[in-house]
Amino acid sequence: MGFKLLSKLLVYLTASIMAIASPLAFSVDSSGEYPTVSEIPVGEVRLYQIADGVWSHIATQSFDGAVYPSNGLIVRDGDELLLIDTAWGAKNTAALLAEIEKQIGLPVTRAVSTHFHDDRVGGVDVLRAAGVATYASPSTRRLAEVEGNEIPTHSLEGLSSSGDAVRFGPVELFYPGAAHSTDNLIVYVPSASVLYGGCAIYELSRTSAGNVADADLAEWPTSIERIQQHYPEAQFVIPGHGLPGGLDLLKHTTNVVKAHTNRSVVE
């Protein structure tokens, strides 16, 4: 069995187990497998329904001669939608809004960016022009300005110390501490036991640490421990890039980060 097929099978099995364990909360999309990078042309966006009122959005972007996937989250909030992270750029984010209108038909009224990198804030200006209120932590807003990236308009308070959590509509926002970046936030959907790890969490097929220019490698494993301790009931975990899975993604990420750190020390 090929690795790609095995990865998709694991996603399907995880979703099936969740649907059985929580039949009222989960209505997993039966329309197909989780979209992969090879299936999404740059400039297009796919939506994948995880649970009743919960979707991931998947886009792709060219970077350094390669094409990478990027995940975000959409959560229903009454007759409105909360968006977590842009679709990595203005063109993708405009396509995301169009796809949401086509498939869901509810307005996106608020959006949260989970850290300051372009795959999370690139497209904020498109959201703002569409009347979406954009939010991020003060740290993310400051770092985005320093980096020359787009800056969300509103500040999220109460997320300055490791372990801080605040309720934001249908989700809980959690600051686990520094990891992929010093400002990275985690998003949890309690009604569906869905954990969105953003770039602080890796997919299972990833074996290298990737972009760690703004990471705190020493603190990252401790931050992941905080996530595990705060959300032990999480059933569906979405990484910032690639295929979702279960809580095993947290341990896998820790292993990859520690291996990278150990290699760096040896070198």
Rank of each mutant, 00 (worst) to 15 (best):
D248F: 14
L143P: 02
G177Y: 01
R110A: 11
D214T: 15
A19H: 00
T14W: 12
A94L: 12
Q49W: 06
L5N: 04
R141Q: 06
S155M: 10
Q229K: 15
T60N: 03
V121A: 10
A129V: 05
P244S: 12
D125V: 05
S191H: 06
T86N: 03
S7R: 10
D125P: 11
S193R: 12
K251Q: 15
K258T: 06
D214L: 12
P221Y: 06
H115Q: 01
V146D: 12
F168C: 12
P244R: 11
A218C: 11
W55L: 09
E172V: 09
S31G: 10
I20D: 05
L127F: 05
A165M: 15
T254K: 05
N92I: 08
Y196G: 09
L83C: 12
N92K: 12
D164A: 09
N92P: 04
V265N: 03
S62G: 07
P152A: 11
G53V: 11
Y175R: 12
L249W: 01
L24G: 08
V257G: 06
H260T: 04
N149A: 10
D125Y: 07
D119P: 00
A136L: 06
Y48F: 10
A215S: 12
I104L: 10
R167K: 04
I84V: 11
S193A: 11
F3A: 11
E33N: 04
P41T: 08
P232A: 05
A95F: 02
L97D: 02
V171D: 00
H115W: 00
G245D: 05
H117N: 00
S7Y: 15
D29N: 03
E157L: 03
E172F: 02
D77H: 04
G43A: 12
L5G: 08
A144P: 09
P107N: 11
K102L: 12
S16H: 01
Y231F: 13
R128N: 14
A179T: 02
I74H: 00
I20A: 13
P170T: 08
K258D: 10
E203D: 01
D64Q: 10
S70A: 09
A136I: 11
A215P: 04
L195D: 00
H180I: 00
A51Y: 15
T86D: 01
A94G: 09
P152C: 14
E150V: 06
Y12T: 14
V187H: 00
L217H: 02
G169F: 14
K251F: 02
P69Y: 14
S31Q: 13
E33V: 09
P41Q: 04
I186Q: 02
V171N: 00
G177M: 00
W88R: 00
A136F: 03
N262V: 06
E145R: 09
L106G: 09
A133D: 13
V212C: 06
Y68G: 09
V187P: 01
M18D: 03
T182N: 04
A90L: 04
L243W: 09
H115K: 00
E44L: 12
P232M: 10
S223D: 02
P176A: 03
P221V: 11
G158D: 12
V237K: 01
G158Y: 08
N92Q: 13
D248W: 08
A192M: 09
V237D: 01
L97V: 02
E44R: 10
S208W: 04
V42P: 06
Q103V: 10
V121R: 15
H241P: 01
V265H: 07
K102D: 12
H230G: 08
V11G: 09
V189T: 06
I151E: 11
Y135E: 00
T253D: 01
L159T: 05
T253R: 01
T153W: 03
A165E: 10
S56F: 14
L83P: 00
G242F: 02
R141D: 02
N149T: 05
G240L: 01
V265I: 03
D214V: 06
A213R: 09
F168M: 09
F26I: 03
V28K: 12
R76L: 12
D85F: 00
I100F: 02
T93I: 03
S31D: 02
V124D: 07
S191A: 07
F26D: 15
V67G: 07
L249V: 07
E225A: 07
G240M: 02
A95Y: 10
I40V: 06
S137W: 10
A87P: 04
P107D: 05
I186W: 12
L243G: 10
N184W: 00
A94Y: 10
V257F: 07
E150G: 10
P152H: 09
H57I: 15
L127N: 00
W220N: 01
H180L: 00
V171T: 09
L243F: 12
M18F: 03
V37P: 05
M1T: 07
R142N: 15
G53R: 07
H260L: 04
V126W: 05
Q49V: 07
I74D: 01
I227A: 07
L82C: 09
S160P: 13
E101L: 12
V166G: 05
S191I: 05
T207D: 14
A59G: 10
G105I: 02
A15R: 11
L5A: 07
D29V: 08
D118N: 02
A130C: 15
L127R: 01
A200H: 02
A25C: 10
A165C: 12
A133P: 07
E172K: 10
A21K: 09
T93R: 00
D164W: 06
L82N: 10
L217S: 13
L127G: 01
S191N: 07
G2M: 15
I74R: 01
S193D: 13
G163R: 08
E225W: 03
S22W: 10
D52Y: 03
R206P: 03
V187N: 01
V112P: 01
R141Y: 15
K251T: 04
A51T: 05
A218R: 10
Y175K: 06
G123M: 01
H230Y: 02
H117Q: 00
V42C: 14
G2I: 07
R46P: 07
K251P: 11
V266A: 07
L10G: 10
I20V: 10
G148H: 03
H241G: 01
H241R: 01
V266Q: 11
P190V: 04
S162N: 12
H154N: 01
A179R: 00
P221K: 14
R128M: 15
S181M: 00
E233C: 13
G246Q: 06
G123W: 01
I50C: 13
E145L: 08
V11R: 13
L185W: 00
P138I: 15
T254I: 04
G158H: 15
V121P: 02
L127V: 05
W88D: 03
P244T: 05
E219V: 06
P152S: 11
N262A: 06
P244F: 11
A129W: 10
L24W: 10
T86Q: 02
L81Y: 04
I40G: 07
I40W: 06
Q229G: 06
L185K: 01
A94P: 06
T109D: 12
P138L: 11
P152D: 09
E33L: 12
A21I: 07
L250V: 11
T114R: 01
P221E: 05
Q235A: 04
I186K: 00
A213D: 14
